[in-house]
């Protein structure tokens, strides 16, 4: 790594760590920004790098929330009794139980979602192009409906998580750092992954899957593993969201196909599909746009957001990074080598 890059990444890391102290009033918005970065980066693993546009990644977010909730409740209480009483306020958690729930719940959510991704992927990866998108969307919608009819996890009423057993501002700080840690881990992970042969193989699947098969690449295995890796991070992010929101319900929060489920795709399109930084930049741009419209154009915010989506999809499909790559290919190392041939 060159000195310049080291300084750049160091400064970015320092800014990430200091952000909640620099802008103490915006801890929750900053945490949500990290959430957007996580879901965008993990969406791009299949959508941008592998060419499989999933509209069902929100399934892992919702499932992660529920897995974390069930684990956390089960640590201290009986889940069926707890949900039947709708929380009720008579249930308490010790510090130890709360943090055990936080750690085991988040890891368990990631693991469970990875298994789900492998299983669902094994079925849906036979679908290509728009059929894959619709198929995965169907999985997410069906899951939301199933969970909202499942009383053991609270049905349509949703489920209530324990309150943080301490100061609320410190709780917000904890959530911010959990999301930040997850996001930074994911960024480091994908930047390593894309530099390996694995990354090249999924790019090959994106560019021409039939050719990849003809060259002997284990295409189905690569697709399942990639989606499972993305699902780990989305599921874990869902788990942290569950603790952050305290109460959530299945259709509008957990399996929110039309909100976060679409936002993650728009973030990636805005920043540039199939690039390392595109999803991150896109998530920042999208989140800023969303916060501004929600604050200053209340009542028109959905129209503004819809207009943004239409403009991006129609005129700006390659996103910011794609635009730059087309205009300045030499910045991305694409050039004719005029040097001596060996």
């Amino acid at each position: 790594m060159t000195m310049r890059r080291l300084v750049f990444y160091g400064a970015l890391l320092a800014l990430s760590l200091a952000a909640p102290f620099l802008f103490p009033a915006f801890k929750t918005q900053l945490a949500t920004l990290w959430l957007m970065i996580i879901v965008a980066l993990s969406w791009d693993m299949t959508g941008g790098q592998m060419g499989y546009n999933s509209l069902g990644n929100i399934f892992f977010y919702g499932t992660g929330m529920y897995v974390a909730a069930v684990i956390t409740i089960a640590i201290a209480h009986d889940v069926g009794e707890y949900t039947a009483a709708s929380g009720g306020g008579i249930y308490t958690w010790t510090w130890g139980q709360y943090f055990a729930g936080l750690v085991i719940g988040t890891l368990g959510a990631g693991f469970f979602c990875a298994v789900c991704a492998a299983v669902i992927g094994w079925i849906t990866f036979g679908l290509r192009g728009p059929y894959f998108a619709i198929g995965t969307l169907g999985v997410a919608i069906a899951a939301g409906e199933l969970v909202s009819n499942w009383d053991w996890v609270g049905g349509g009423q949703g489920i209530t998580m324990p309150n943080y057993p301490g100061d609320f501002e410190r709780f917000k700080l904890l959530i911010y750092y959990l999301f930040a840690a997850l996001g930074i881990t994911l960024f480091v992970f994908v930047s390593w992954l894309y530099s390996t042969r694995f990354g090249a193989a999924i790019n090959a699947i994106r560019d021409d899957e039939e050719k990849a098969e003809a060259m002997g690449i284990h295409t189905l295995r690569y697709k399942m593993v990639t989606w499972a890796m993305a699902a780990v991070f989305v599921g874990a992010a869902g788990a942290v969201s569950a603790f952050q929101l305290i109460h959530f319900e299945p259709l509008e929060t957990a399996y929110q196909t039309i909100n976060l489920g679409i936002f993650m795709v728009v973030c990636v399109l805005l920043g540039g599909k199939g690039t390392l930084w595109g999803p991150v930049i896109g998530a920042v741009m999208f989140h800023a746009f969303k916060e501004v419209t929600w604050s200053y154009f209340l009542g028109w915010q959905w129209i503004a957001l819809g207009a943004l989506i239409v403009v991006v999809v129609v005129y700006f499909q390659d996103g910011l990074m794609g635009y730059l790559r087309q205009r300045r290919p030499d910045w991305f190392g694409m050039r004719v080598d005029a040097g001596e041939t060996p």
Binding site: D207, I217, H218
Partner: peptide
């Protein structure tokens, strides 16, 4: 059929024989 969005060297490297590649090899550079 080639991998259009990748450069020529990347096209070549991804064509390394996968029959000789273990799972661990796939996660190497």
């Amino acid at each position: 059929r080639i991998y259009g969005a990748m450069n020529c060297v990347e096209n070549m490297l991804v064509s390394l024989p996968h029959r000789k590649m273990s799972i661990r090899d796939a996660f190497r550079r």
